[in-house]
Structure formats: structure tokens, C-alpha cells
Design a binder for these strands. Structure first.
Lengths: 401, 401
DNA sequence: TTTCAGTTAAGAAGGTTGTCTATTACAGTC
DNA sequence: GACTGTAATAGACAACCTTCTTAACTGAAA
């Protein structure tokens, strides 16, 4: 339905244009008045006026001079990023990774703290506070300026009840009123998101999903998870339970591959990899070591031939329900086997299903969860800035003396 | 991501406000200048100016006088609906149903033409042209004013290739370049949409889905189909193959209910209903008669007890993949068994799955496909009107003499 | 001397407030 | 029951505010 757009007074124009200006400054980095005029499509005087308002509101500042060509040097303006920053946090059983994020999306150091380093009882708020401080210290930022954090976890938060769901391992985390409890304890806005979903956001923004209308990301690690991206938005489901495909009953055809499998979850597990590798005499303590050993072994391709149909059976329900444009195989297993596995799954699907969906290997293999959280936070911090523009004073309004 | 809004000149305000005015007139019916001012939040002179522009562009016209209360009678304006209309068409094996749709969404007669009435070779364009003429004749509208038709079919059109997919029965329809061929032959814009999807649109707009964030609609008739609504938008999938859940392998648990089932499609078919009814001595020629007979029989509840788990197994993959807020059981079977079946399926899911999703019976049981197509067309016709507003002349521009 | 950054001035487009007139309904009053 | 004054409303008009634009101007750097 054509949403009846809100009516417009001249004041609306100002807000609209100030917002445009701030957005352009955020996306394109430092700019001169004239560059802003050209990029916004507005006239020079208008661009100057926007700059004046944004500078007065202390949303932007002079950041240098451009000295290209003849004529006087133009003043460069850039967005002030030291007023509100975010911290991206990846909470995993092995430890917590974190990094500072500002509105420009500039890179900041990534900090890892192993789980053992936290002494005594585990407590979610304490863990997160420590991660925030560590990230800020590494980036030389004041922790007081943190306004929002995005936390990736192995599980989901029920959007309607704020309860923790589909989680086995999260020691010290509250089960109810999760974001509310954490936000109160930390004094900042808290966004909790499933880690596979964050990885999907990362692949959408700077990876294998950039130009996709829609894609599904299958996370294969110690468990299975599916993240769905519809046109750039991650789908959570009504109760945060979207993508929990592991609980689907295994299809009858699966007995050919694994006679014991009752659920889809049973088709691709750590145990599965161990068994397939064991037949070729490959063994290791941890999943990571095992995957590395397989990748280095000539029997690799034979193992992938056996693994691919199982992966195909896992994603089949997602194909039939939402028909994504492409599938990305991610997680430790997807990363370890890359294109060799993706190609085999794609071929199996083309032969054994009615869909011929491209299957891709992941492109973001280093701290993918943190990458996704970074994008969430860039959006959040920018959003806050852009909303501040709506309350900027008018021309005539003098500041109180 | 905060889409950088386009910059604004005063001219943008005019377009914005004209659009608002037209939208309000469409949604609220005939209005006076002052009512428009109040509803739009704009001043009286501005409202008068908008009216002047829209009337001059022949998008609205004087349609009467309001005589409520004191003061002079106010002139009522309403949108001109005789310039561009749409025709909603439901193509089913038994025949073709059609009706006229205008921007106001006012009711128009519904016309049904049985399949046998069309002599000789079936041809899609001819069938549709006949349906358009019949609908226009019944509504006393000029077929020349039809600019767009929305056709519901048992199948889908691949959005990227314009091919007909997932269709068995559609005699006389082209298999490739479907909308393009039809649009050329009919000389109007053609929107082809899966019938289950149209029913979902109808339930979203005026039925069991009005206030849902997201819902899944399971169509149970001669075959199975699933329509997905995400926040008011029907999801088609990259290749128009979303919701084709019938091709998913039947889960291992299904053997308890039907040892022969290989695919989910096999769990709820006409044959299934016949078998379940047959055990209670109920028989009939057609599915419609059979459903009617069951509904009138005391053994009804026993049959539903057996049917419900099968339906539960069918929707389970959709729950795990997208976790909809609610499920609507539609189609001949869903309509016939209503709340009695829905309640049983809901109870079964609560017990046998990790989801406790509400299951609802359909509320739009009369010509639901046509209802959905109506909404699509109301949007399309309004969209065209609203876009015309963008090209309205300014104050100073005199018409060429 | 050319080029470009930045400013200033005039004015166009759109919206607002406030006022005024004409018109009608309602409420008294004869 | 007819007449008249009053209140409320529709619609128009005038004066003014805000925002953007065009065009000219100033001054600095190559």
C-alpha cells in the first residue's frame, strides 16, 4: 500500500538536507563545502548553510585543508566520532573478542580475552564490561563515550519477551530480560544478536552476499545454524527461532547416508566429521585441529564427497521454503573446506532437488562475527547522529546566553 | 543502513504534499478542503492550493456538497476513478473469475465463466481478454480504461526469466516470457501471481493476518502450497520457488502416519482425505463434495484427529526455517475444517515441536484469490495516480493555448 | 591573470498566520 | 409561524516566514 507520506513544511526540507549532508560526510569521509554541494545536488550557499548548522551543533568539525589545484585552499569537514562510539563483542565458549566501532567505520584494534582469564564466577555484565574496557583501551578511546554495544552469542533473544532461547552454553547469562538487564548493568544500549546472523550481515555488506537479493547462510560448527537475509535484512522470526533447522526431522532419504539420524542436526555434526575422517585414519583432539588435518590430507576430496550430500539434505528445507538466491557455507567447517565443499553441494543439489541454487564459500573468514557486529554498530551510531539532526535549531534561534 | 535521503528543494514539498492529499482522498473518500487541511496537518490555504492543482490535472473532481452544521455548504472532492482501472482475474481449472477494481477499492460485480464455455483451443490471452470484457460489462466500465490486470494462477512466474514454473495445469498458457507476451497481447500491464500468494495478501489486508508481523499460509487443496508474508510483503524467492514445500523429503517420523510417504506432498493430498474418510464409510466424487460430506458427519472429529499430525509435519520445516508469528490453514481443506482442524494442528505442534505457533482458520473464504488480486490492483492503480502527481505543473506554468 | 573557495544579495517557490466576507443553521423573539 | 440576530463555517486574500537558487562579488593561491 502506498504509505501516505507525511506532509511537508519548509522546516522538513532543512532536516532532510542536513541529514543528507551528514550521511554524505559519513560515507565519503572529509569533504569541502563545494564537494558537499556537488554530491548533494544542492547549491553552494545551501551547502555552506548546512555545514554551518552541523558545525554549530558540534556534529562535524574542521579536519584539514584540501590543496588541490589553484585557488585558495578549501576547508575540509568531517564528522566528529569521539562523542558516541560502539563496541562490537563476540562471546564464544573459548573467549571474548571485542573492538571499538565509530560512525565512520574506521578500523580499530581487535582484542581477544580467553575464557580462563576471567577468574571466579562468570557473569555476563562483568564479562562485557571487561570487553568494553579492553577494546577502548586498545583504541585509546574513553569508555564513557560508548553508547551502544552489539553482542554476538550462540543463541537468540526472543524479540517479544527478551528471553534467551535456543542456547545451551552461556554461563553467567540471565535467561530473562536479557537486553534489559545488561543495558541497565552497563549503562549503554545493548543489541544481542545470534552469531550466525551477524556473520550473514558481514557477508551481505562486504562478502559473498553484497549483490544478492536474498541469501541463506549455513553455519556449520559444533552445531548447525541458518541465517536468512532478505534484501539486506536478517530475518529473526517471530520468536527469534528462525533458522533453527536442526530440529527438522531428517528426511527418509537420509537413511542412505546415516541410518541413525533422526533430526537434520544429526546429519552434519562434529561426530559426523570425526567418523568420516576416521575411515581415512585421520584423527585429532579438537574440531579445529581435525578440520586442519583433513584439509591437509589427500583423502580430503573423498571425505567431501561423502559430506556434501549431507549438507545438501540440510539446506533442502530452506530452499523449498524461502528459495534463496544463493547459499553460503560458513562456520569452521564451511571455512575449512571452502570452494571444494561448496562446489560439491551445489552439484548435489542440482541433481537431487528441483532447485539449482548457487552454493558459495565464505569470503569473510577472519572474525566474521565481529565484522557483522561492526556493521550493526556503524548503522546504530549513524542512526543516532542522523536523528540528532532533526532537533537542530533554526536560523533565528539564538543560543541562550 | 541509513539510506541517504535525496536532497530537497521547495518543489519536493509540493510533490510530497500533493501525494499526501491524493492518498488521503483515496483512503477516506470524498472530502472538503478543510477536512483535507485537518487530516494532512497543513494549513487551509495550502490545502486549497493542493486541491486546485489536483483538480486542474483532472486527478480529482467535485463530487457533491457537504451540508453538515452551520455555515455555507462545503464542496466535496473525490478522486477520478474512471481514467484508469484494473481487473482482477482468478484462473482455475474449473473456470475464470474476474472483477473490476478501481483506486478507491469500491466493490464491483464478480463474474464467473466456466471453463467449458470457452469453445475450441484454449489461449491465455483470449481467455483473459474475455474475462476483462466480462468484468467491465458487469461493472459498466469501458474496457479501454483498463490499464493493469492481476492474474492469479496455480503456479509461479520466475521473476528473473519471466518463465512459468511449478505449474502442471494451465492449458494455452505460454511457458516463456509470460507477462511480456500477455501484456503485449492485451495492451495492458499484466501482473501474474501465485494464487496462494494472493490469498495471503487478502488475509494480510483484511483477514487473519492484519496485525501479524509475519505469517505463513498453508494452502491445502489438490496440492500443497505455502505463502509467506514478511511484514506485509509476500516472499517469492529468487526463482519464484519459495513455498514449494511439497518437494521436501518426508521426515522419518512420518512413517508412523503414512508408511508410503516419500515427500511432504504425500502427507496431505486428496488421496489422503479419501483414505481417512473411507475408513468411516464416507465417499464422494469430487474433493469439494467429499469435504462437505465429512464436515456433516459425526466421524468428522476422528478424521481431523488423524489429519492434524500430518498437517503439523507439513508445516514443521517452515516453522524451523522462518518461524512465522502465526499459521493460517487455507484452501478447500482449510476452509472446510476451519477452527476444528486449526486447533488440533496447533495442539500437535505445541506438543511435538519446539515452536508453539498459533494456527488459525481462514477468514476470507469467498473468492479469496480475487480478494488478494483486488488489493494488488488497488495498490497498482493508486501508485500510478500518485506518480502522476510528481509531474504536475507548477503555479506559474500556463497551459499552451 | 586565471581559478577556485566562500560570501552576499535578490528573488522564486512553498507554507503559515491572520483577517475578511459570504453563507447557512440555530435560537430567540414578535 | 414568521422574522431577526448570532454563531459557526467555507473560502479567499494579504502579509510574512523559511528554504533553496541564481548570479555577482571578494579575495587568496598558483
Amino acid at each position: 500500500m502506498p504509505r501516505t507520506s507525511r506532509p511537508g513544511t519548509p522546516a522538513l526540507l532543512r532536516v532532510l538536507n542536513d541529514r543528507t549532508a551528514l550521511g554524505l560526510l559519513l560515507e565519503n569521509g572529509p569533504m569541502t563545502r563545494n564537494e558537499l554541494a556537488r554530491l548533494s545536488g544542492l547549491s553552494k550557499p545551501t551547502a555552506a548553510e548546512m555545514i554551518r548548522r552541523l558545525e554549530e551543533a558540534e556534529l562535524i568539525e574542521v579536519s584539514g585543508e584540501s590543496s588541490s589545484g589553484r585557488g585558495p585552499a578549501a576547508v575540509l569537514y568531517s564528522v566528529l566520532t569521539d562523542r558516541a562510539i560502539g563496541v562490537a563483542i563476540d562471546v564464544q565458549p573459548l573467549g571474548i573478542t571485542s573492538t571499538v566501532v565509530d560512525a565512520t567505520g574506521a578500523a580499530h584494534p581487535v582484542v581477544f580475552e580467553a575464557a580462563e582469564e576471567a577468574p571466579g564466577e562468570r557473569d555476563a555484565a562483568t564479562d562485557l564490561a571487561r570487553a568494553i574496557d579492553a577494546a577502548c583501551a586498545a583504541a585509546s578511546r574513553d569508555p564513557e563515550t560508548v553508547t551502544v554495544v552489539c553482542v554476538g552469542i550462540q543463541g537468540s533473544v526472543e524479540p517479544r519477551t527478551d528471553d534467551l532461547v535456543f542456547t545451551d552454553e552461556l554461563p553467567g547469562w540471565p535467561r530473562h530480560e536479557v537486553t534489559e538487564t545488561l543495558a541497565k548493568a552497563l549503562g549503554v544500549e545493548v543489541l544481542v544478536e545470534n552469531d550466525a546472523n551477524l556473520v550473514a550481515i558481514a557477508e551481505r555488506r562486504e562478502g559473498a552476499g553484497v549483490d544478492a537479493s536474498t541469501f541463506a547462510l549455513l553455519w556449520m560448527g559444533n552445531g548447525l545454524g541458518l541465517a536468512l537475509d532478505f534484501g539486506g535484512t536478517v530475518h529473526h522470526g517471530a520468536a527469534g527461532g528462525a533458522g533453527e533447522i536442526g530440529y527438522i526431522g531428517a528426511p527418509i532419504d537420509a537413511v542412505d547416508y546415516d541410518p541413525e539420524a533422526r533430526l537434520i542436526d544429526d546429519l552434519v555434526t562434529t561426530r559426523t566429521i570425526e567418523r568420516l575422517a576416521g575411515r581415512h585414519g585421520i584423527e585429532a583432539e579438537t574440531l579445529a585441529d581435525l578440520l586442519e588435518a583433513i584439509s591437509a590430507d589427500p583423502a580430503r576430496l573423498a571425505i567431501l564427497d561423502e559430506l556434501a550430500p549431507r549438507v545438501g539434505l540440510v539446506v533442502m528445507p530452506a530452499l523449498a521454503v524461502v528459495d534463496p538466491e544463493r547459499i553460503i557455507l560458513h562456520g569452521p567447517i564451511g571455512i575449512a573446506f571452502g570452494a571444494e565443499l561448496a562446489g560439491r553441494v551445489e552439484a548435489w543439489l542440482a541433481e537431487h532437488s528441483r532447485w539449482s541454487t548457487p552454493v558459495l564459500n565464505p569470503t569473510i573468514t577472519q572474525t566474521p562475527v565481529l565484522h557483522g557486529a561492526r556493521h550493526v554498530l556503524i548503522d546504530a551510531v549513524r542512526q543516532a547522529l542522523v536523528e540528532a539532526v532533526a532537533h537542530l535549531p533554526s536560523v533565528g534561534d539564538d543560543p541562550p546566553e
